[in-house]
């Protein structure tokens, strides 16, 4: 290597970017040709190329073999979890039930006298008054539901107006404890509390029959899809339970969603009026104020927004339905 001393190569920076891309095989033949011509006359860039190439070589070649127990251990955990599915499902039922309750809540609210023009008497009325005209038909296969929802979201974008007041701090911690064990601690009590709301779900069905053609909550449940295209006021909780990233339930969130959740959980931005944000948040549930505390105990999640809309339980495998 030359002993000429050192050079300032800032002006070659653009060429170095080409060098980097060339090492990755990402240049066109023309670009390669031009780079070669430059390299022929530029010692600095040749040094840069040698340096970058040697670094990439180390990173490519220094592969560490994972320990044998990794595959075995992972398989073991897989089998255990498969066995526990029934048990896990009991936990998941809370999510599903939450969706049903939301649906019921919607029906009840819609029927309630104050929903027609009750003003501020009920804090939850605001969102309900702004009903969407769009009717929803449940898709035949849950797999297509997400696309369907995106479509719906576009279609209803202008209809449900989010109330003016900002949602409470989206980063608010709803709970302190964050262990899955605790969630299982008092299933009976939680369940009974939730079940008591269940009959209302059926009561709500007639009202939402347009959106949910001829189906009871139980049927929809069994089909893996529960839908409502209406704005549902309540609190959206993003669940942090283990395995909480399945599309077991999904909420619309009108308003900002914390960035960490957006990036980590693949939330989908939805078409929305200018100046507003709307997101599709996998694995979140929407509950009314009365149930907030109860659910935050069950879910240990983050409060996302004051307004939300449950649109479905998705991708529920048949074998996961059985308690």
């Amino acid at each position: 290597m030359s002993q000429e001393g050192v050079s300032q190569v800032a002006e070659c920076r653009e060429w170095m970017e080409q060098i980097s891309a060339s090492l990755d095989g990402e240049l066109s033949p023309e670009e390669e040709q031009a780079l070669e011509e430059h390299l022929a006359e530029c010692r600095d860039c040749r040094t840069a190329m040698a340096l970058l190439r040697s670094m990439a070589k180390v990173m490519r070649e220094d592969t560490v073999q994972p320990p044998e127990k990794l595959a075995e251990g992972t398989r073991y955990l897989f089998e255990q979890e498969k066995k526990d599915r029934g048990f896990r499902w009991k936990r998941w039922r809370f999510t599903a039930i939450a969706a049903v309750i939301c649906l019921a809540l919607f029906g009840v609210i819609k029927l309630a006298p104050w929903s027609a023009g009750g003003g501020s008497a009920a804090p939850m009325a605001a969102g309900v008054r702004a009903e969407s005209d769009v009717k929803v038909s449940a898709p035949a296969a849950p797999a297509s539901a997400l696309n369907e929802m995106k479509y719906m979201a576009g279609g209803t974008a202008a209809a449900p107006q989010a109330p003016e007041e900002p949602a409470p701090g989206p980063e608010t911690e709803v709970c302190v404890d964050n262990t899955a064990e605790a969630a299982e601690a008092e299933p009976t009590e939680q369940m009974s509390g939730l079940r008591s709301a269940a009959p209302a779900a059926d009561a709500g069905e007639t009202d939402t029959a347009d959106g949910l053609p001829g189906a009871s909550a139980q049927d929809l449940w069994a089909n893996g899809t529960i839908y409502s295209a209406e704005s549902l006021p309540g609190y959206v909780i993003y669940s942090q339970l283990e395995g909480a990233d399945s599309y077991y339930s999904v909420c619309f969130v009108y308003g900002p969603v914390p960035e960490t959740i957006r990036t980590n959980r693949e939330c989908t931005p939805l078409e929305s009026p200018e100046g507003q944000e709307r997101w599709l948040v996998p694995h979140s549930v929407c509950v009314n104020e009365g149930l907030l505390e109860q659910f935050s105990e069950v879910y240990y999640g983050d409060l996302l927004s004051q307004q939300g809309l449950v649109i479905g339980i998705l991708d529920m495998e048949e074998d996961q339905w059985q308690p």
């Binding site: 290597m1 050192v6 050079s7 190569v9 800032a10 170095m16």
Partner: peptide
């Protein structure tokens, strides 16, 4: 900071 390359005693490849 741009990459400022000094002259090296050896080829980077050999060093690494």
């Amino acid at each position: 900071r741009t990459l400022e390359l000094p002259d090296l005693r050896e080829e980077p490849q050999t060093i690494l």
